[in-house]
Simulated assay, not measured.
Amino acid sequence: MEKIKEFIQTHVSLFYKVCLFLTVIGLLLFVVPTFLFGSNVYQKDTGIGVANQVQIDQIQFVQLKRSYNPQRQYAEILLKASESIPNNGKLEIVAGELKTRQRIETKLLQLSSNEYVIQLYQIPQTWQDIIIDIGITYATDSYKTIHSLEDIFKEFGQKNQSATERTVQSKLFMAKAKVPKNRSLISKSVTDYQLEMIQLSIKEAQQLVKENQQTISKFLSEIAQIEKQIQVLNKEKKYQTTSEVQATEQLILSKMNRIEEAKGQIQKAEIANKEVQQKIEKLLLQKEDLRKKAGDK
């Protein structure tokens, strides 16, 4: 009996020691990388593409490209809006590092009526998360108000309190682990950014043409299969009763309607491709004109 007690005490003690050791090792594996390199577990990030677009009023903003140069402590975001900012509005940004609460120097370049570049300078070397407040400040249209005799004393004591502008805003988040590094990234001229935007647009347009062409091929393949099915059905009518023939003809008619629908979709895709190709030509012309203009300076 004494030997059994001694065995249990020895091995139970050993069991707890092993569990304690594994627990400590597990904590170290989690805590040490977090302490040294920063944890990515709680990082929030607004990725590129329409799936991560942010909305300000009725305008959607999409990040097309972003990158970070750790050596220069510089990052930039290519931004596209769904439409131009209203005449009485102005796009503004403010950025800061979340952990240190340090303000980050920013610059906003407008490339076209709805294309922008956000530039971030002097980013802390130890940064983990950057938050960018992006908003549209609207000037009020109070100057358009026509006052009459009845308005005397109507707003007495309130005129100085009325706001001359209002701001609607949203946020973009940048997680260090999610932003591509580019050690050759530097701040460029507006023309260079415009050329980059044009190249991105050309690439996207070419992808649309390719996808439309694939869609056309699939519809053509579907039409060929349906036509074979119709041939088989027509041959089977020879051995069918009157009611069976009527049912087969109805089935053939539905398949022929499907062929017409597919042909209509092919026509739409071809028209779309023609327009996209025209847009590519215009973008190439714009690219050439910008390069000539830059060369003349």
Rank of each mutant, 00 (worst) to 15 (best):
S13K: 12
R258Q: 09
F37P: 05
V41Q: 09
P33C: 13
N88V: 00
K3S: 07
Q53F: 01
K203P: 06
E2D: 10
S170K: 12
S148L: 11
Q206N: 15
T242W: 00
F30A: 10
E204R: 15
D45Q: 08
Q231S: 12
T241H: 01
E244T: 13
I85P: 01
E6C: 02
T242C: 01
I4C: 06
K287F: 02
T241V: 06
V54F: 08
Q278K: 11
P180N: 07
K282Q: 15
T215P: 06
L185D: 07
V209T: 11
N212P: 02
L208W: 11
D296L: 15
Q231R: 14
G264Y: 02
L185W: 07
T241I: 03
V94F: 06
K238C: 00
G135Y: 03
K188E: 08
L20Y: 02
D151A: 05
N234A: 09
I152D: 04
I25C: 15
L98K: 12
K268I: 15
Y42M: 14
A81T: 00
I131P: 01
Q225L: 15
S217D: 15
Q71I: 05
V209Q: 13
F153P: 00
V62A: 12
S148I: 11
E196V: 02
Q125T: 03
E105T: 13
K90G: 00
G49H: 10
T164G: 13
R66H: 07
F61S: 08
Q9D: 10
L285R: 08
D296W: 09
I104D: 06
S39P: 14
N40K: 12
E155M: 03
Q161A: 14
T145P: 00
T145K: 08
K107S: 03
R166Q: 13
S82N: 06
D151W: 12
K144R: 15
G49T: 09
V190T: 03
V276W: 08
Q119N: 07
V245I: 10
Q53R: 10
S39K: 08
S254D: 02
E165V: 00
A177M: 05
I202A: 10
P33K: 10
V94E: 05
L79H: 06
